[in-house]
Nucleic acid binder design. Sequence first.
DNA 1: ATGTTTTTTGCAACATAGTTGCATTTTCTA
DNA 2: TAGAAAATGCAACTATGTTGCAAAAAACAT
Lengths: 139, 139
Amino acid sequence: MDAKTIYHEILKESNLSATRFRINTLKEIDMAGRPISRNELMEKLGSNTDRVTLYRNLQGLCDAGIIENVDPEGSGYFVMKYGKKAHTQHHLHFECTACKKLYCIHEIVGDISKIPTGFNVKSFYLLAKGTCEACSTKT
Amino acid sequence: MDAKTIYHEILKESNLSATRFRINTLKEIDMAGRPISRNELMEKLGSNTDRVTLYRNLQGLCDAGIIENVDPEGSGYFVMKYGKKAHTQHHLHFECTACKKLYCIHEIVGDISKIPTGFNVKSFYLLAKGTCEACSTKT
DNA sequence: ATGTTTTTTGCAACATAGTTGCATTTTCTA
DNA sequence: TAGAAAATGCAACTATGTTGCAAAAAACAT
Ligand SMILES: [Mn+2]
Ligand SMILES: [Mn+2]
Ligand SMILES: [Zn+2]
Ligand SMILES: [Zn+2]
């Protein structure tokens, strides 16, 4: 039996069983410190990780409000919802097409209040793509 | 041999062969008047349309600057780049999760100039999701 | 702690989306 | 209208995402 971690607490508060799979998943997402993709998560958890279980758990953790998918179009980028940096206000995410990292750009925020009436807004995303500094300066 | 259309002209200007497939594709995109999805395009062109050829042509037409993919994450939404309504400035696109239509919301625009230096921006998108008026008021 | 119930996991099978290579057909050019 | 160049259609493949179910793990009550 493993020692209790903060992830046990987080899961218990949301009435989710503290399974090894969930603990490890949350640990990796929290460690990353930036939104992490499904594929990167898959690598960190071990390539033998079951794809279905990962999908189901990421969905469940999103539903519970523990993590957030900040780019739900493609294959998703996940981040702890209540981590160090506030991730509440809608801000820009920059995806590097070379290294696939997703950066939070807090300088650019969105204002959904100007959307015309009639539209029932459920979600709102600002997304930019290109290459990050590290990848741009590579030969 | 069919009569020449404006689409022949457009393609010739970009040094692309005026094939029946491209003419029909451009015609449907132009008719739609709003960004149209791959699946909708597939239906309009006939369900026997070759998927590979559609992918290759949409990509080619984007590369040539004739059309634009305003939502390149999921499966893409395509629009004529130089149609009636100017589609030059970055503005919000609203995708209805019920009817799958994509609406242009010109009231909300993006300003990429505030992205910190170091990031090499290639594309920039504002996307909202929810239900449109028509779908929201259905029982 | 032990047995019982409930939840989660892992697997197989399936579905959809997108890519690659190549032979055939169409379009362009002279 | 013949030859060269480009595009198309098809088969096969990879990647991504979903569903149902039996086995395993976790939670719960005693
Ligand atoms: Mn962020
Ligand atoms: Mn638009
Ligand atoms: Zn990068
Ligand atoms: Zn709708």
